[in-house]
Design a protein around this nucleic acid. Structure first.
Length: 238
DNA sequence: AAATCCAACGGGTTTACCTCA
DNA sequence: CATGAGGTAAACCCGTTGGAT
């Protein structure tokens, strides 16, 4: 005799096909028996292909395994619950790994940013030096002063600073030797010098470090973007 | 003896079907 | 006849129970 049959013998009519069982009797003489290995194996096999059973299939399975349809239904219910828990665990682990990955990337980017800020501070310091000194360093050891004038008093060609169409500074030493300094990223006005740090410092770290601002933030897409669409991480910000 | 597993239960919700005003 | 409200049964989910391991 199967364990299921034994169970059924103990409780008589169980809710099957609309027949209501005697719940009080069931509760008092509770005598749970685990399903046999073979029953479990069959149920698992069915569950792999369908997590819910049609009423007919349920009756058929119950008959084949020597169980009540109600028992099969409950087994599927419990199985769905266990499966859901496992799925949640899996998803949690994936999310945790994704978060850890993102966090370490963020850490690297933070350090990169700090290095860039330091470099900018250094450059900013250079820019704050007296104009003559800057000019001296700009155009070399000859001590050529930057000026917009093109003609000197002695007739010799004075050094010239002009911008080309792309915003590139052309620094002419007066002897047709052009020293080209790219300044398109710095802007054209003098006062931009003072804006360097404010521009750089504007993005607030808190936008990434504060979880309050993470709503709707899809880490997967970020990781995906940074790893595929943007071969270099800094391109992500542009 | 405590922890864990799991069949089964209880209660609440949803859905489909039926009846009736 | 069409329709909306109300009742009922079945199935499901979630949390819990209690026997077995």
């Amino acid at each position: 005799m199967e364990e299921g049959d034994l169970f059924n013998c103990c409780f008589g009519e169980i809710n099957s096909g609309g027949v209501t069982m005697n719940k009080k009797k069931m509760k008092k003489s509770y005598n749970q028996k685990r399903f046999s290995e073979e029953q479990i194996k069959s149920l698992e096999l069915i569950f792999e292909s369908e997590t819910r059973l049609e009423p007919r299939k349920k009756v058929q399975v119950a008959r084949e395994l020597g169980l009540q349809p109600r028992q099969v239904a409950i087994w599927f219910q419990n199985k769905r619950a266990r499966w859901k828990t496992k799925q949640l665990e899996k998803e949690f682990n994936i999310l945790r790994a994704s978060y850890n990955n993102l966090a370490s990337q963020f850490d690297i980017m933070k350090k990169e940013k700090q290095a860039l800020v330091s470099e900018l501070q250094r450059l900013n310091g250079e820019m704050q030096k007296p104009k003559e000194k800057r000019d001296h360093e700009c155009c070399g050891e000859q001590g050529v002063a930057l000026s917009s004038s093109t003609e000197s008093h002695n007739g010799k060609c004075e050094p010239e600073v002009r911008l080309d169409s792309e915003g590139i500074v052309l620094c002419n030493d007066g002897d047709n030797n052009n020293n080209i300094i790219k300044t398109e990223y710095f802007g054209f006005e003098e006062e931009t010098d003072h804006e360097f740090m404010s521009i750089v410092e504007k993005p607030d770290d808190s936008c990434l470090t504060s979880s309050d601002n993470w709503g709707g933030f899809n880490s997967d897409s970020l990781l995906d973007q940074s790893s595929s669409s943007y071969p270099n991480w800094w391109e992500f910000w542009s």
